[in-house]
Nucleic acid binder design. Structure first.
Lengths: 166, 166
DNA sequence: GTAGGTCAGTTGACCGTTCAACTGACGGCG
DNA sequence: CGCCGTCAGTTGAACGGTCAACTGACCTAC
């Protein structure tokens, strides 16, 4: 293991400002969504993906992939959304292992009701605060990070000690 | 309520890229920290704040404020950290209501062990992916967002329907 | 001094996420 | 055909976080 490349004072400040801003931003948007639509952001994203899919239907695993979340999370979330009547499960006709999640009309209505406020929040707390050049800078920065991070699949797991084990 | 200012195609793409990148970035860093140090990012941040405080000691509420998290979260977290032997609680001498959290030597050692890997992760997944101008752009963008968001305290609560109530 | 409001912190129930273990269907190979 | 590894998805326990209710100490005003 090589010597640690510590952050200098400037980088340190940048990192903390960035961390703080992202924490507040996503915290605020989450809170607004929870307050106004009664759902966490993860559920909103599932509804969005489904609403854009052909026949408002998706395989569980593509739903997981496109929301970059685990199969388990999708499974639990869809279970809750099904109870709420926003999503319906169907068995896949071509692969009996597979399951399809279908957005119901109620689910679409719930999404339609939630979207305006949420979008307004995104605009207010993000786009309105930045100059047009900053928006494109943010876009480029995000794309760079996304390119790097999305190529990090199935990294070696290693040992994972838990806090409780100490 | 005015008409919704929807996102245009460019903004939509920017927002999704940004959302995806941030999700992957913080997800990756969280996972690394959990794997290598056995603690979630929130706990790490508490240890950092304490390590920088005079006498490695802080009031619970300033700890909460400086990590922009709720008193409740700090209370739960410090309870866990105390069980792990990384933090010790003391009653405040000047205000008997108050509690002081003190970083123990074990806690400092745990932080010292966790820091290099975590910093390396921040560098690898963030700074290394950006050009120097992009780093200052990100800094400015974060500062702008932080300025806006940190002035949003105690916003009116409003109605908060739960998913289960439907 | 004592009553009432505020403040610091804790507690417990609930929720969403994660991890690991499991079920059951697919698919290639003998 | 029948086995075996893989794949899709589910399940349940554990964990971190949130919210609301609570405890107890401070503090001002009467």
């Amino acid at each position: 293991m090589a010597e640690t490349r510590w952050l200098d004072a400037d980088e340190q400040r940048t990192w903390r400002t960035f961390l703080g801003a992202m924490g507040l931003l996503f915290g605020q948007l989450d809170r607004e969504l929870q307050r106004d639509a009664g759902m966490p952001h993860g559920y909103y994203e599932i509804l969005v993906r489904l609403s854009e899919a052909p026949h408002r239907t998706m395989r569980m695993s593509s739903l997981a992939e496109s929301s970059q979340s685990s199969r388990s999370r999708i499974s639990h979330a869809v279970a809750k959304l099904e109870i709420a009547g926003w999503v319906r499960r169907e068995t896949c006709p071509t692969d009996r292992r597979g399951a399809l999640a279908v957005l119901t009309d109620d689910g679409f209505a719930a999404l339609a009701a939630a979207a305006p406020t949420h979008v307004e929040g995104v605009r207010t707390h993000l786009f309105d605060q930045l100059t047009p050049p900053q928006v494109s800078q943010l876009s480029a920065i995000s794309a760079a990070l996304l390119g790097h991070l999305s190529s990090l699949e199935g990294a070696p797991a290693g040992h994972r000690p838990d806090l409780a084990e100490r």
